[in-house]
């Protein structure tokens, strides 16, 4: 047993599993505690403004909010272990059902976003690195830096609003809101991907500039290997570790940061659900969504670590992935 744990992969996976469990435990406690920090009486909000004191108290008992906090936490934990995230105070629907209905919208926008981010930023970063190699085209280097800097400085809701005004309201070529068709994905995807494209293309450009100056790249150019092959076979693999690490973080951020984009585009995902649930004091739904988003983010980061370890086994021994 001891010898298995001293081998790199089992030890690595064990460490990652422990990290996952710890993060989930912390998430569970935090998500339970955090909703109780929201001011206002959930029983009052759920019972309705015009509810009598008796109706408010009956609601409190029905929701279990009359029980001590520890007892409520125990019930919450017991539910989690049986896969029960609870029932929405507001609609009476199982929280798991609400999440199941909403998660695909958030996940799809995040996955589209990360795909666009990877494709565009790799192409853009490599192109700029190639075109500015050896201090050529300094204007391009400068324009790239300024443009990505400005995009990074713009809040995502501003980008979203500008896209809506231009493409939906003025040109009327894309829907302003909703999730009724494939066209509905375009503007939210562009909005959610614009910042990450700016940051990742800067990273790719910087890493690629270093790679392009390496001896093996000079040799490849000396052998008259086509530019596409030079980049595809030699440059891109060397950019993979940092790009993957950043993309994992970006993807987790996109899922967590969907709140704003979903509000701007009336996108029916988890971000909007959590905002509505906080306003409605729908504790089980708030907890369920935050726990789910947190768990997905943790799982994504660990998955990226595993992929990095596969790509670059040195990270196994380093104790953690390159970041």
């Amino acid at each position: 047993m001891y010898s298995i744990l001293t081998r790199p992969w089992p030890a690595f996976l064990l460490r990652k599993t422990a990290e996952l469990l710890l993060a989930l435990a912390a998430l569970t406690v935090i998500t339970f505690a955090i909703v109780h920090l929201i001011p206002g009486d959930a029983a009052r909000v759920v019972a309705g403004v015009d509810a009598s004191p008796e109706q408010v108290e009956a609601t409190r008992v029905r929701l279990g909010l009359d029980q001590p906090l520890l007892a409520q936490f125990w019930n919450y934990l017991a539910g989690l272990f049986t896969g029960d995230l609870g029932t929405s105070y507001r609609t009476g629907q199982p929280v798991a059902d609400v999440i199941a209905a909403r998660l695909p919208f958030t996940a799809s926008i995040a996955l589209f976003g990360i795909a666009v981010t990877l494709v565009v930023s790799l192409a853009l970063g490599l192109a700029v690195a190639g075109l500015t190699r050896g201090n050529r085209n300094p204007w391009l280097d400068s324009a790239f830096g300024w443009t990505t800097g400005i995009v990074l400085a713009l809040p995502v809701y501003v980008i979203g609003a500008v896209l809506i005004v231009v493409f939906a309201v003025n040109w009327r070529v894309l829907p302003a809101a909703g999730a009724d068709s494939m066209a509905s994905y375009v503007l939210p995807t562009v909005a959610i991907a614009s910042g990450p494209i700016a940051s990742m293309s800067r990273l790719v450009r910087r890493e690629a500039a270093v790679v392009l100056e390496q001896d093996y790249m000079r040799t490849a150019r000396g052998w008259r290997i086509s530019t596409f092959r030079q980049f595809a076979k030699h440059a891109v693999p060397n950019l993979l570790a940092s790009t993957l690490t950043l993309s994992g973080l970006i993807l987790a951020g996109m899922i967590g940061g969907a709140i704003i984009i979903e509000s701007v585009f009336a996108w029916p995902g988890l971000g909007r659900a959590v905002v509505e649930s906080i306003i409605d004091r729908d504790y089980p739904l708030t907890r369920g969504v935050v726990l789910t988003v947190g768990a997905v983010a943790v799982a994504l980061n660990i998955a990226i670590d595993i992929v990095l370890a596969l790509v670059d086994p040195r990270t196994l021994r380093a104790g953690k992935a390159l970041a």
Partner: peptide, 17 residues
Amino acid sequence: FAVGAEDAVANQLLTGE
């Protein structure tokens, strides 16, 4: 009836959605 479009409904009226 679309739901949750409170912040977007004016845009959707203008675009004919």
